[in-house]
Design a protein around this nucleic acid. Structure first.
Lengths: 345, 345
DNA sequence: TTGTACGCGTTATCAA
DNA sequence: TTGATAACGCGTACAA
């Protein structure tokens, strides 16, 4: 059994409250005479005292724990975000409870219930189908909450990339190599993210074929057979998991189309197919989350604004080569594209 | 304020103990008269009662929470494992606390301390430098503990891949394309994993150059300049993060060497450089972890054995092409390599 | 400056 | 079959 306040009190001939006050530190500890204070501290370290955080939580209703509820932690995008968030939170004395909804609304609700029961202090949420009312019904209104990546209208603490701008950039970049007819492979269109991206892409080009399925690599792989007969100039994927499957199947095909991807795909530079991705600044997203959350945790009443990061695109080397070829082929010049920076692995 | 046992007791004219017993369910609930039992259950659902898990934990010393302490959750290898573990644990009613040591021993110890204080029920650990004694000093001896990926001598609950076998397979496969002189790029050699892999590779080939650094993509990138002048037949990386940097820098070079990687690298198939990886069966690792952990949590006294999964290698298409070319070039035949299965993205 | 006593919400023990 | 009561370990209002 680890030592408790009682043990220290007995050891030092004081009471639990005295010990508690000493170990609380700061101003409250200064109300204790220097002499007993030192005696208590000595005994505490000698006994190797560590406060029981469960008891403390029960008493204070604060667990120093934040929940991160994402749709898929296996997705490198969320994995990297999780890593950064964990680091920052740890610096501030918070632990991280990892919750994976797996795009499953039931699991999402289950986890939201748990938050109250476990006295979780705050939540960083990548929501699924949920709308604001439905969400607020599951979660105490006062819970510090930051929405990540998929903004929900009406919730102010949110950080995401400018989806419209991203889509526009992606399409513009595709057009620089003469893309007109596209195929789209998407995840389930009842998911906001997929739907928005799908619509955005559809609006910009002549849609010659599409393939919808679960947001898995398998769907991306299957799309090849379905889309290629329509000879698209480009294939657009509504997320990176789909893209990975697509690319994997596509690389065996001679003269593959250009690929446009919402989100980025690892090792892009090394892939011999022209690719352009709408990348998100993962560092800024994670940083933004934490910076929105911390004031809320403190009860800081300063008004919070949704944080919308600018969109970017990144192209790989094969795409740049294609672009060069295309610009020479058309007019022979005017190569004045705002050069997108290379993606860093 | 959410309703408590007291509220239900008042509402139903019973006592907290009765309510507690009813809601405990199972055999203990059957000792309550059917009539009051139903009355209590009705009130509970009507009030929307949810047990306060913090209070329960304080009383029972069980939090239904497992900690997963990994070296880097941003690494897709651990991210995938985390995802699978989370799913399985969630099925069994456990939550997951995500801890990232970031290969930093201090952070590791900090987190180990927290486990006691938070009444965490079990730990899945990817250890850093720690040896058994040092570890057991930080962690209560009775804590259900499974070591993942980096076995520690003397700890029985462990699941990992056969490192020796993996290394041998990797080297054998490299030799099938005539590799003799190698460069090695490694993470810090005081880390067990890197050291073991380094030694294994060194033993099999003629080492012409090496580069050691932090286990980052940057180190991999830097290695190119340092290793290439020695014209190695192959470059071996002691993990996937290093490999990603290396490949990224290498793809711009004409006539790149073969690459051997401990761990796998995403999108391998699509990369136009010959690659062979020692892959690990992520599903089996995660499954193994949970299967070792659950009996320990139940206090099941059945003896646990370290679980060592067989090693595998995977090659990409470029490697297979090289292999074909090589076998034709040498003797013109005897192409009887146990064909390694293609990697699935 | 210090100590006493209560409450956080549960589970568990002991009587009735 | 039930209820009163004591923990679990901590923080804190109130008293001294």
């Amino acid at each position: 059994m680890p030592p408790t306040l009682v043990d220290i009190a007995r050891e030092t001939n004081t009471s639990v409250s005295t010990v508690s006050r000493v170990l609380a530190g700061g101003v409250i500890a200064n109300r204790i005479s220097k002499e007993t204070r030192e005696r208590v501290q000595l005994a505490a370290t000698r006994l190797g005292y560590r406060p029981n955080l469960v008891a403390r939580t029960l008493r204070t209703r604060r667990s120093n724990t934040i929940a991160l509820l994402v749709s898929d932690i296996a997705n490198p995008f969320y994995a990297q975000i999780a890593s950064l968030i964990e680091q920052r939170l740890h610096q501030h004395g918070y632990s991280l409870m990892l919750c994976n909804s797996g795009e499953n609304p039931t699991r999402e609700v289950e986890y939201l219930q748990l938050l109250n029961q476990k006295a979780i202090d705050g939540l960083i949420l990548v929501p699924i189908t949920i709308n604001k009312d439905h969400l607020m019904q599951q979660v105490p209104a006062k819970l510090p909450l930051v929405i990540l990546d998929r903004p929900i209208p009406g919730i102010d603490a949110a950080v995401s990339c400018d989806q419209v701008e991203s889509a526009r950039l992606l399409c513009d970049t595709l057009r620089t190599v003469g893309v007109r007819n596209v195929g789209i492979v998407s995840g389930p269109l009842h998911v906001m993210t997929h739907k928005n991206r799908y619509e955005a892409a559809k609006q910009c080009f002549n849609l010659v074929a599409q393939h919808e399925g679960t947001a898995t690599a398998e769907t991306g792989r299957d799309a090849v057979a379905k889309l290629m007969p329509h000879k698209p100039d480009a294939i657009i994927c509504t997320n990176n998991t789909l893209a990975r499957g697509l690319i994997d199947a596509l690389v065996q095909i001679e003269n593959p189309p250009v690929i446009g991807i919402f989100d980025e795909v690892p090792m892009m530079h090394v892939i011999p197919i022209p690719i352009v991705c709408a990348v998100q600044d993962i560092n800024a997203l994670a940083e933004g989350c934490v910076n929105q959350l911390l004031p809320l945790l403190r009860g800081d009443p300063k008004p919070i604004m949704p944080m919308i990061l600018p969109g970017h695109t990144a192209t790989n080397r094969a795409f740049e080569a294609r672009r060069l070829a295309h610009s020479q082929q058309t007019t022979g010049g005017e190569s004045n594209h705002s050069s997108t920076e290379p993606m860093n692995a």
